[in-house]
Design a protein around this nucleic acid. Structure first.
Length: 712
DNA sequence: GTAGGGTTAG
């Protein structure tokens, strides 16, 4: 190497010439040996150390400088930012200003990034003031960083910490120009737009930043407008642009536009990008094209935890719960660590499948991973425990949460509603409002469902009307359905019929079939026939309606009508979905199909049922065969009843668990009336708490009673 | 200096 002065001159021009860590250390040693380590040369070495990520060495050398020049300051600030030590980066910036050094345009991108990461908008605004005063608001990199900061911080206004950095700064009085600077900025994306317009030259990053800002604040049309504007310049969309734009089409469920982007990405060779790949998997899944998601996922050259989770979440969104769990397991086996988002995606799969043991396992993972206080996960857990039949565990998690939002409130309210504790649900709804949390559409579905399950007609009307009058929410199909259900259950069948006929949204087969089942409960065959025609007019293949009508004809002895209806079913190729129930015993799920005697424990089950039957009859049980739709004699009907899947599952549970263990059974269709009576007796005779989840709610059987109060 | 996946209902 030539003389130190020449070396310095060469390095100032191109400090990246030093490529290895040992080279940098050698250079440093050489300067010390020749006693030529001036302020300038030290700064250059600091900057070289920073480039090579030698944080410790850079800081040590920095500390030896009495009055560090700008180059040294900016290296150190960048160093801290790169190492995610954002507070220290900002503290250094304040110290630098206090020492009278004037920052150059290389300093601000790091400083602004630190403000963004510290979520301190006030500090960021004062830095912006500083930038304007130094005339650096036209600098491309600085402007891009400013846009990013405003987009992130103004978009999350409820979560930002105002002036946190200043308050913690020990020497804050020595930096007056920062402290007093307050920019009065317009809110939200307007600030970003303003910065964007000031920039004399824009690059791809400028466009990407503003597009992402619009996309993340839900201003999709403005985002897409910027993409078009970008097209009129000679700047071309890159991987960043595309992975920002695709989620807009997921939101719009516009698979045509999404596919166009996919095609463009293939032509540009961007389709293998991990970020873009995850957006693509998500876009196809949200457009109900899960096979396309699978195809994209299988072709990804590299997969990180987000790309895995995009497909897991996609499966859940499309109701493919077992596949979601399978993929999640596969991901863990491949040593890809699931983050908090992965848990909040996969836990709902357990909720839908009612697999308590898997849900509990995931809960364990969550706690070990330190995600116990994540509000998304906690809400999902509340829902999972309640759907798996354990409302007490759900309540415990709810009570331990630090903050409750409308989603967590709704989860617990819906939980109580489904378990038949309608009054508790209604009072929680009131508590939510009291605490200033505004109920949304789903919260109203929950509270109306609660009213419906316990027959709170007046309260339900109050809530239904308050939606539009107090909260400015539209009535959606689900709200109409809940009220119609409520009227029907309460026996106000004609009123319910009128209500559905006058709904302001298009009715569906399911709304009418809810009323149909009320007609069946209240034995109103005449109205049922009218309602059934409504159902078939909308949905001619509605199995539930066929079965209900067949049942009603059967219980009225109208075998001819029943046969006609069955013929109609057969012509359409419809087959009755077999009733099945399942139960978890020792972490294994056992399924039972009505009338199927193939389970290996069948002999023991029958032996148990025969024994318990004797006692039941002593206590006054009489088989209610009215629900059996077969045209056979009563003795045969009784036998058919005893083969019902829920009864088999309950019996299996009792003979395979310790005395006193709670029995949890899940059934795919509504629990049968006679089984409901029988299980009440069984709970009393065996002294067991038995919880049956059917397709609409939970029944807690205890000491001969059921939580539904026989109102379901 | 820029990007992707999440909770409640149906």
């Amino acid at each position: 190497m030539s003389s130190s002065k020449t070396l310095i001159r060469t390095l100032i021009k191109n400090p990246t010439r030093i490529k290895s860590k040992s080279q940098a250390k050698q250079l440093h040693a050489q300067f010390i040996r020749t006693q030529s380590l001036s302020h300038t040369s030290a700064s250059i070495i600091i900057s070289i150390y920073t480039n090579l990520k030698l944080l410790h060495e850079a800081l040590l050398l920095f500390k030896t400088l009495e009055s560090p020049p700008v180059l040294a300051w900016k290296s150190v600030i960048r160093c801290f930012t790169d190492q995610s030590l954002f507070f220290r980066a900002l503290a250094s910036f304040v110290e630098m200003r206090a020492s009278g050094r004037c920052p150059d345009h290389n300093v601000f991108p790091s400083v602004l990034k630190s403000c963004t990461m510290m979520t301190d908008l006030r500090f960021g605004e004062s830095v912006h003031g500083c930038i304007v005063r130094l005339g650096m608001d036209c600098d491309l990199y600085t402007g891009n960083a400013l846009m990013n900061m405003y987009a992130k911080l103004l978009g999350m206004s409820s979560k930002i910490s105002v002036g946190k950095v200043f308050d913690e700064m020990p020497q804050r009085t020595s930096c007056d120009d920062l402290k007093d600077e307050t920019c009065i900025m317009p809110l939200g994306m307007d600030s970003v737009r303003k910065v964007f317009e000031v920039l004399p030259r824009k690059d791809v990053v400028s466009y990407n930043t503003i597009i992402a800002g619009y996309a993340q604040s839900g201003m999709y049309e403005d985002g897409l407008r910027m993409v078009r504007e970008m097209g009129t310049t000679d700047l071309k969309p890159d991987a960043f642009t595309l992975s920002t734009v695709l989620p807009i089409f997921s939101e719009y469920v516009d698979v045509i536009k999404g596919k166009e982007i996919h095609g463009y990405a293939i032509r540009k060779g961007i389709d293998s990008d991990v970020y873009f790949g995850s957006s693509l998997v998500d876009m196809y899944a949200k457009s109900a094209r899960i096979e396309d998601s699978e195809r994209v996922f299988s072709r990804l050259s590299r997969r990180d935890s987000i790309s895995w989770n995009s497909l897991v979440a996609g499966y859940v969104q499309n109701g493919r719960y077992n596949e979601a769990l399978r993929l999640f397991r596969q991901m863990v086996m491949k040593k890809v660590r699931p983050g908090p988002v992965a848990f909040s995606s996969v836990i709902p799969a357990c909720a839908h499948l009612a697999t308590l043991h898997l849900g509990k396992q995931l809960h364990g993972y969550v706690l070990r991973g330190g995600f116990g206080s994540n509000i998304f996960i906690s809400s999902a857990l509340v829902d999972m425990y309640s759907k798996c039949g354990n409302i007490n565990a759900a309540r415990k998690i709810f009570d331990r949460m630090n903050v409750h939002d409308e989603v967590s409130w709704t989860a617990i309210i819906m939980g109580y509603a489904l378990h038949g504790y309608g009054h508790e649900a209604v009072s929680l709804f009131e508590e939510m409002k009291q605490q200033g949390v505004k109920p949304n559409h789903v919260a109203f579905v929950a509270v109306l469902t609660a009213c419906s399950h316990v027959g709170l007609v007046d309260e339900a009307w109050g809530y239904f009307n308050s939606m539009t009058k107090v909260y400015g929410l539209n009535h959606e199909l689900e709200h109409y359905a809940a009220v119609a259900d409520l009227l029907g259950r309460a026996g106000k069948l004609e009123e319910a019929y009128e209500f559905i006929s006058k709904m302001r949204v298009e009715s569906t087969g399911s709304v009418w079939s809810t009323l149909l089942s009320s007609c069946s409960v209240h034995k109103n065959l005449e109205l049922a026939e009218k309602v059934a025609e409504k159902v078939f007019a909308i949905d001619s293949e509605n199995m539930g309606a066929y079965v209900l009508m067949c049942n009603m004809y059967a219980s009225n002895g109208r075998w001819k009508e029943m046969a006609k209806l069955r013929l109609r079913m057969r012509k359409k190729g419809l087959r009755k979905k077999p009733a099945c129930s399942w139960i978890e015993v020792k972490n294994k799920t056992h399924g039972f199909v009505s009338g199927d005697r193939s389970h290996p424990s069948m002999d023991r089950i029958n032996e148990f049922l025969d024994g318990v039957m004797e006692q039941m009859e002593k206590e006054g049980y009489v088989a209610d065969t009215s629900g059996v739709l077969h045209d056979v004699d009563d003795e045969h009907k009784r036998e058919l009843l005893f083969g019902h899947s829920e009864r088999l599952a309950v019996a299996f549970g009792i003979i395979n668990t310790e005395p006193g263990t709670t029995i949890r059974v899940t059934k795919n269709i509504r629990i049968c009336k006679d089984c409901h009576v029988a299980i009440k007796y069984i709970s009393k005779i065996t002294e067991r708490e038995i919880i049956v989840r059917d397709n609409s709610r939970f029944h807690h059987f205890n000491r001969g009673n059921c939580s539904c109060g026989d109102y379901w």
